[in-house]
Simulated assay, not measured.
Amino acid sequence: MQLTINRIDTRYVLDNEGGGPWLTFIHQLGGDHSVWDQMAGYFRERFTVLRYDLRGHGDTTVSTDAFSIDDLADDLAELLDRVGAPSTHVVGLSIGGMIAQTFAANHADRVDSLTVVGAPAFIPDDARPTFAQRAAHAREHGTTSLADATLERWMTPDFRKAHPEVVEQIGETIARTPAEGFARAAEAVSRFDMRDKLRNIDARTLVIAGEHDSGTPPAASKVIADTVPGARFETLDAAHLSPVEQSQRFSALLDSFLRNPI
């Protein structure tokens, strides 16, 4: 399904077999909504599950202007308005976790709970050039050239060896991401900093980190849990894509969090 959100033609997928509370999943940089396929299948009997493609990813058009993570959070707010969701549980992975934090701070009345996966509270000054370099590389060489190195960071060697079909699918998604869409999102990531806002988040919060995530080490994610009042912190035996690599444990952890509001 397609809607024009803040002048961007946006692809979204709605699974509402259960007709229950809204549950929104936000994907990673260089990904699309399909990374959440397994989670949608697990939760759609009890929740109204919303997935969508970020600007310049999947089947959502590329923004002609630069944007920030705040702009991407506003995209989500507009999408929720358009599909009739007054509030939602929000689960974000990587850049999706940055958007989820920002959404919880900027649109607090729309958040039933917050789950941040494989995302930091901020991008350190010494790491910002890395994202600028990835943006420049994508523009010059295309996103296919980024796939192999990205897959090595995103999944552990054992998982890549045992599940080549999953690795291939995710690699194809990276390669299909428009270079300019990837680049503009990477530049938005480079400017991300939530440190001044985290203490104001009052939504129930779960933070999940991959024990082997070299891009966003657990310590970087734990800053969120240590700052948001009452937040819970968990680690999984995975690299960056813990919902894929440890799908059963991830779904059980998220299910327990959603079922137990206290």
Rank of each mutant, 00 (worst) to 15 (best):
Q2P: 07
L3V: 04
I5S: 05
N6F: 00
Y12I: 00
Y12K: 01
D15L: 04
N16C: 11
G20T: 00
P21K: 05
L23T: 01
L23F: 02
Q28H: 13
Q28E: 14
G30H: 00
G31M: 02
V35A: 04
Q38K: 08
A40I: 00
F43E: 02
R44L: 02
R44V: 02
E45S: 14
E45K: 13
V49P: 10
R51L: 12
R51W: 11
Y52A: 04
H57C: 15
G58P: 11
D59Q: 14
S63P: 06
T64M: 07
S68I: 03
D70E: 15
D71F: 09
D71V: 13
A73R: 06
A73H: 09
L76C: 13
E78C: 12
L79C: 10
L79P: 13
H89E: 10
G92L: 00
S94A: 14
S94V: 01
S94Y: 06
I95F: 11
G96S: 04
F103Q: 07
A104I: 08
A104R: 07
A105V: 10
N106D: 14
A108G: 13
D109C: 00
V111F: 10
T115W: 10
V117L: 06
V117D: 06
G118C: 02
A119Y: 05
P124T: 03
P124F: 06
D126E: 15
A132V: 12
R134W: 14
A135V: 06
R139D: 15
R139F: 09
E140D: 14
E140K: 14
S145F: 08
D148K: 10
D148M: 00
A149V: 06
A149Y: 02
T150R: 05
R153E: 10
R153C: 11
W154K: 04
F159S: 02
H163A: 14
I170S: 06
E172Y: 08
R176I: 06
T177P: 05
A179G: 08
A179C: 13
E180N: 03
E180A: 10
F182G: 06
R184P: 04
R184W: 04
A185G: 09
E187S: 07
S190W: 01
R195G: 06
R195F: 03
L198I: 07
R199M: 12
R199S: 15
R199E: 15
I201N: 09
D202N: 14
L206F: 12
I208K: 02
A209K: 01
A209E: 11
G215Y: 05
G215M: 09
A220I: 01
S221F: 03
K222H: 12
V223C: 10
D226T: 01
D226W: 06
P229Q: 10
A231T: 12
R232Y: 06
F233M: 07
D237V: 09
A238T: 08
A238W: 00
A238C: 05
E245K: 04
Q246F: 08
Q248W: 10
Q248L: 11
S251Q: 13
A252E: 15
D255S: 11
S256G: 14
P261A: 13
